[in-house]
């Protein structure tokens, strides 16, 4: 059952400078659903709209970001709601942190530098629950213990903790209210690989224990390969391919996905890694037709004029590329030859 359904979502950054408005189409017509209890990955280069998508889904929309269309439906066990219909900030606030929660990037300043960790926990818990001090301590103690953290971290300030420790504490804080959906926004960025592994395992452990749904956003394909059930690949504000991890990693259908995957190191493969040439386009003025065509080695005239729709290939796999359409056998042949 889908716990989150996003339908044709359009989230643009609209800015006005001296009367001239400019629009950055960070998320442009994105549709997908996330099943209950699964780990759904969203991959893509920097600046492809991943973080904006997260902001929109979690109801953290502030100017200049605007939602210009689409629907975001949450199907909780006891309640169904479209977050875009919630006009009242209070209702959205009650949702955030309690039912849907965010694990932010592992950066230096996710926790207030002049507040003790315990205060940060109090802020979050008392914002959603009406508990006594004893209940608060029990709740936090149990949670920390389950995550293998010590109660003494509660008395420290963020700057006294190492980067990895701080990220663990942040994860503990994000999951203390047992949210039904967890959004993890590049949770392992800015951490060294050893710590990354620990953080990934921690997230996995919490997910298994709390039985919640996890949406994982990162550009790191190896993290997706380790964790996710299904994966969506975003390019220039659109989803270009989506599928379960096995089939997507096994036989990528979109040239962009192949590019991302061919940059990954593989055990036993000693050939030089190929990186994707070029850079993602400006979202203020995306190229016509398929947005990937300027970087695509297989682009034909049709790609420059028409925009490919995200088509269902089989039950689990969707792709937005003319290459995969019936009648483009010629194209596929060329692609196969070049490979």
């Amino acid at each position: 059952m889908a716990i989150l359904e996003v339908d044709n979502l359009k989230a643009y950054y609209v800015t006005q400078t001296f009367g001239r408005s400019s629009t950055v189409r960070a998320v442009d017509g994105v549709s997908f659903h996330v099943n209950k209890n699964e780990i759904y990955g969203i991959a893509g280069e920097s600046g492809c709209g991943k973080s904006t998508l997260l902001k929109a889904i979690s109801g953290l929309v502030k100017p200049p970001l605007q939602i210009l269309g689409g629907e975001i439906r949450y199907n909780f066990a006891d309640q169904q709601l479209n977050i875009l219909d919630l006009k009242d900030e209070k209702q959205r606030r009650r949702l955030r942190g309690a039912r849907i929660s965010l694990i932010p990037q592992g950066s230096m300043s996710v926790l207030n530098p002049v507040r003790r960790i315990k205060k940060s926990f109090e802020d979050v818990i008392y914002a959603h629950l009406d508990v006594s001090e004893g209940e608060f301590e029990e709740l936090v103690k149990n949670h920390l213990e389950a995550l293998g953290l010590d109660w003494t971290v509660m008395h420290t300030y963020p700057h006294q903790l190492s980067g990895g420790m701080r990220q663990r504490v942040t994860i503990a804080l994000s999951t203390i209210l047992r949210p039904e959906i967890i959004f993890a926004d590049e949770p392992t960025t800015a951490l060294d690989v050893v710590v990354q592994r620990g953080v990934i395992q921690l997230i996995k452990k919490i997910k298994e224990e709390q039985q919640n749904t996890l949406i994982l956003v990162t550009h790191d394909m190896s993290v997706h390969a380790t964790l996710c059930d299904r994966l969506a690949v975003m390019y220039a504000g659109e989803i270009v391919e989506e599928g379960d991890v096995k089939s997507l990693f096994g036989s990528p259908k979109h040239p962009y996905t192949s590019m991302l995957l061919s940059s990954l190191p593989k055990i036993g493969d000693k050939s030089a890694r190929v990186s994707a040439p070029g850079a993602p386009p400006s979202l203020a003025n995306p190229p016509a037709g398929c947005r990937f065509h300027p970087r695509c080695p297989y682009a034909v005239d049709r790609c420059r004029q028409e925009t490919p729709a995200l088509r269902q290939l089989n039950e689990t796999h969707r792709v937005a590329c003319f290459l995969q359409e019936a009648g483009s056998m010629e194209l596929q042949g060329r692609a196969a030859n070049e490979q």
Binding site: S58, L60, E89, R93, R94, L95, R96, G97, A98, S101, L102, P104, Q105, S107, M108, S109, V110, L111, N112, P113, R115, K119, D123, V124, A127, H128, T170, L173, S174
Partner: peptide, 22 residues
């Protein structure tokens, strides 16, 4: 614009708390 204010908003803290304590 700091991460900890954005995170506090994402955690559903009351607006007054964010304004005064953050």
């Amino acid at each position: 614009e700091e991460d900890y204010v954005v995170y506090a908003e994402a955690s559903g803290l009351p607006k007054a708390k964010i304004i005064f304590m953050y």
